[in-house]
Amino acid sequence: MSLTATDVARLAGLARIELTDAELEKLTGQLDVILDSVAVVQAAAGDDVVPTSHALDLANVFRADEVTPSLASAAVLAAAPAQEDGRFRVPHILEED
């Protein structure tokens, strides 16, 4: 299959990445070539092969349920692009009428 600029624009939207028209055009061509070359994996393994999501066979790890110190909120907020009243300030979430 071949990827169109409309597909890439939709994917960029899902990934929350604004692209210029020039970027969109260049990326569409490049992604198409990359997808074409990685498609070999599709024919490589049959239904009998179990997928591996992780190299280590690990179980989840739990620690004791004890209160331990965490980062001071002032130290964390110091890195925020915008803050107000000890909280992260975010752009508006709901569209205004």
Binding site: V41, A44, A45, P51
Partner: peptide, 10 residues
């Protein structure tokens, strides 16, 4: 894509 790649990983 992702599923097949995970099988190749195996």
């Amino acid at each position: 894509y992702y599923g097949s790649a995970q099988k190749v990983r195996t």
